[in-house]
Design a protein around this nucleic acid. Structure first.
Lengths: 409, 409
DNA sequence: GAGTTATGTTGCATGGCCAAACATATTTGG
DNA sequence: CCAAATATGTTTGGCCATGCAACATAACTC
C-alpha cells in the first residue's frame, strides 16, 4: 500500500497531459508556497523539503527573487559545522492582496502581503440593515483607498479577495443569495468594478469557507490537513478543508450545514424549514434562551450576554450551555461525515467558547467512536479576522499556482 | 477568475518538487486512465483529449502497449478524409484485479480487467451471523481460486481490492470495527495473507466508499465529478466523491452519516446514541414499520416486503413512504453539506427505489434552494455490485498512478 | 592553521516533450 | 483511374528543466 501515486502524491485527476513548462510552474509554486506558509528558511532546508536538487532550488529561488517575491538574505548564525546556507524569505510587498470582508455586522478591508503580512487592516461596524450592493462597494472603496495609498512605494497588487456572508458560485463569484445582507443574484466582481477599478482579478467566496481557509493557513495548525470551521453569526456558517484544499462542492455551495435538520420539533427557520441547526444553535436561539435580559439583536444584545455570563448569571449560563449542546450535536454530524482532525469554532462560538465548550463536547461525543477520539474541538486562533485572512489566501493561491504568470518578469 | 492553476488544473498541494521522470509517469497515467474510463478511442482523439503532441502520444501509447495494457488495433471505418487513426483500447488481462466484497448478507468475488471488463463474478449468500475473519478469508479463497484459474493464460494480476461493511483505516486497510460482521481491530490484509498468498498489494476500504467509486467510474455518469452514494443495508452506508476523488477524511472514516442525529425523540441506535439516521431509515426501521407482516430480518423479510409492496398493500406502502421521508431528510443534509450533482441510492434503496423516491424527494427538498435545484436523486445504475466494482477501481487507481512501476517492462 | 563538514556554483548529461519535415492512407473530384 | 486534398503517423533535431559530479567556499573543530 501507499505506493503508486503520481505527481506529488496526487492521484491522476485531470485528463490533460503535462509538458516540461508546467513542471517549472509547479516547482516555482512549491517553493513559494513553502515560504508563504512556514516563513523564512535556509535554502538548504528548502532543498530537503522539496526533494529537488540543490542546483534546481538555487535556480528557482533565483527566479522568484528576480520577480520580487522573495529575498535571499545573508545566512544567520549557523548551528553547526559546514558552510552556512542563506536564509530565504518572502518579500511581502512583492505580492499584495486587497482583502475584503462583508460580514453581518461589519465591513473590513486589509492589505496583505505574501507570507501573510498584514500591512493595514480596518474594520467598521455597520448596523444590520440591508445595504444595497452598490452602497457596500462605495463603502469598501472608501475604506480601501487610504490603505492602498499607505503601502510601500513599489508594491505589486496581485488581486482582491472578498469574503461574503452568502452563497457564492465558485465559477465567477456570483452571489446567489445573502439573506443577512438582503442580496440576491449579485454579480459581485462586476458591481465592485463599477466603483473601484483595480485592474487585477477579483475572487469572491463564502465567508465561512474563507474562515476555514484562514484558520488552515494562519491558525498555527501545523500538519493539520483536514479541518471543519464552524462560525456562529446570525446563522451558522461552515467551511471545510479536505486534504489541504477547501471543499466547495460542484457549484461552490458546499458546507451549508446550518440548514440541516437537527430537531423535527423545533422552530421554523428563515429558510422555511423546521428545526434547522441554526434555529437551535445560532445567535437568535441563544438570545431567545437568555430571554428578556438581553433584548434586541446583534452586537448590543451579545455584549449584554457576555456581561451576564461573566457575572455568573445562572440563567444566562444555562442558555449558553443549552446552545452549546445543540452546537455539539451539529458538530457530531460533521465529525461523522468529514472525519477531521479538528473542529475550529469562530464568530459567536469563538466569543462564548469558554461557556459552551463543555456542553458542545458532551453532545459531539455522540459521533462514531474512531472519529470522535481523534477529533478535538478548539477555539479559533485567528479570531474575528479569519475570513479576511482567508480572502487574501484565496488570491495567494493564484500566485502560488503560477508565479511566473502573475509576477513581473 | 479561473486562471492560475498549476499542473493539470490542480492546485499546488504537495510540498514536493517534481522531476521530469514524474512527468512521464503522469502522462502515462493520463492516457491509461482515459482508455480505462471511456474505452476504445482513436489515437488522434487521444492526442486531442490529452493536449499532448502527436509524437508524445505515439510514444506513450507505444510504451503502454509494450507493457501489455493496451492494444493499438487497426483503424476502423474512417468518417472523413485524411489518414485513418488506429484505434487504441485497453487489454483487460494486461492488468487484472481480484475484487472482493464482504457484505452483510453475502460474499462476492470477481476478476476484473482494466477497462472494467469483468471476467468472472461470483456471489454467495451468507446468513447474517458473525463469521470470524479467519473463516471469511477461507471462504474468499475458495471462491477466488477457480476464478483466477479461469483467467486467460497470460494474465497479469496487479492487486486485490476489498470492500468491507465496516470502518477501515485508509493508511493500511486495518478494519477498526465492523459491527455487522462482529469484527473489531482486524488487520485485514494480514489475515487475508494467512490464507491466500497473492504476492500483490491488497487494498481495503469501506463498502459505501467503494460503492460511490463504483458508481462514479462505471455508472455511466459522464461528466459528474461530485456525487453522494447512499446505500441501505442494516445500517446506512455513505460514500462521497468530491471533484472526482473519494472523500476519505483524515484517517479514512469520513462518510459515516448513518449515525448523525436526525430525530431527538427517536430510538436508541446500536451505536448507543438516540435517533441516528439509520434507526429511522435503515432496514430495521423499515421492517419495524411494516410490522408483523414481514417478520424476522434480512433477505427473507425484505423479500416479503417486496411482495407486499408489489401487491399494493397499503400498510407496506405507507411504511416504505415513511422510511423514504426519513431517507430524504438525511439526504437533505448531505446535499447541503456536499452540493453534489447527484445522489445515488443503492442497496435497500435501490431495491425499493420506486416506492421511496417520491417521499425522499419531498423531504430532501428542505435543502437550501440553490443546491436542491441542481441535485437529483437517482437509483444506482451499477446495482448490487457497485462496491465490488469500486474495489477493483481502487486498485486500478494504483496502476493509473504509475503504470511503469506496476506493469511489466 | 589544517582538517572536517555542509553548502553554493558551474558545466555537462539525461529525459521528456514539441515542432517541423516527411511519409502514408484515405476521401473527393475530375 | 489518377491527382488533389486532408488528416494522421513517423522521424529527426532542438529545447527545457532537472539531476549529477566536480570544484569552490565558508563556517566549525581541534
Amino acid at each position: 500500500m501507499g505506493r503508486g501515486r503520481a505527481l506529488l502524491g496526487q492521484p491522476v485527476r485531470s485528463g490533460r497531459g503535462v509538458a516540461a513548462e508546467e513542471l517549472r510552474r509547479h516547482n516555482l509554486g512549491v517553493v513559494l508556497k513553502h515560504l508563504h506558509m512556514v516563513g523564512p528558511v535556509s535554502r538548504s532546508e528548502l532543498t530537503a523539503k522539496t526533494g529537488l536538487n540543490r542546483s534546481t532550488v538555487a535556480d528557482l529561488v533565483g527566479e522568484l527573487a528576480a520577480r520580487g517575491v522573495v529575498t535571499a538574505g545573508p545566512s544567520k548564525i549557523a548551528p553547526g559545522p559546514g558552510r552556512p546556507s542563506p536564509i530565504v524569505d518572502v518579500r511581502p510587498h512583492g505580492a499584495v492582496v486587497l482583502a475584503i470582508e462583508v460580514a453581518v455586522d461589519s465591513l473590513a478591508v486589509a492589505t496583505v502581503g505574501i507570507g501573510g503580512h498584514i500591512f493595514n487592516e480596518i474594520r467598521v461596524a455597520r448596523p444590520r440593515g440591508h445595504f444595497q450592493p452598490g452602497q457596500t462597494v462605495v463603502d469598501i472603496s472608501q475604506l480601501a483607498r487610504p490603505l492602498l495609498a499607505a503601502l510601500p512605494a513599489e508594491y505589486n497588487l496581485v488581486g482582491a479577495g472578498v469574503a461574503i456572508v452568502g452563497i457564492v458560485r465558485r465559477r465567477d463569484g456570483f452571489v446567489q443569495c445573502a439573506p443577512h445582507l438582503g442580496w440576491q443574484d449579485i454579480p459581485f466582481p462586476d458591481v465592485l468594478a463599477t466603483e473601484f477599478v483595480l485592474d487585477v482579478p477579483v475572487r469572491v467566496a463564502n465567508h465561512a469557507d474563507l474562515g476555514a481557509l484562514g484558520e488552515y493557513r494562519r491558525g498555527g495548525l501545523a500538519g493539520v490537513e483536514h479541518l471543519v470551521f464552524v462560525s456562529g453569526d446570525v446563522g451558522i456558517g461552515c467551511g471545510v478543508i479536505v486534504d489541504g484544499s477547501p471543499l466547495l462542492g460542484s457549484a461552490g455551495y458546499a458546507g451549508e450545514a446550518g440548514h440541516n435538520l437537527i430537531n423535527p420539533d423545533g422552530r421554523r427557520c428563515v429558510c422555511g424549514s423546521i428545526g434547522c441547526w441554526e434555529t437551535e444553535a445560532g445567535e437568535r436561539a441563544l438570545l431567545r434562551r437568555v430571554g428578556a435580559a438581553a433584548q434586541g439583536e446583534g452586537l448590543d444584545a451579545l455584549a449584554r450576554v457576555e456581561e451576564l455570563a461573566a457575572g455568573g448569571d445562572p440563567a444566562t449560563l444555562a442558555a449558553l450551555a443549552e446552545t452549546g449542546r445543540w452546537l455539539g450535536t451539529g458538530i457530531r454530524g460533521l465529525i461523522n461525515v468529514f472525519n477531521p482532525e479538528i473542529v475550529v469554532l469562530g464568530g459567536l462560538y469563538h466569543r462564548f467558547f469558554d461557556y459552551m465548550e463543555e456542553a458542545a463536547n458532551e453532545t459531539a461525543a455522540g459521533a462514531i467512536d474512531v472519529s470522535r477520539r481523534m477529533t478535538s474541538i478548539v477555539r479559533s486562533s485567528v479570531g474575528a479576522g479569519a475570513a479576511l485572512v482567508g480572502a487574501a489566501e484565496l488570491v495567494f493561491d493564484d500566485v502560488i499556482a503560477d508565479p511566473a504568470a502573475i509576477l513581473p518578469g
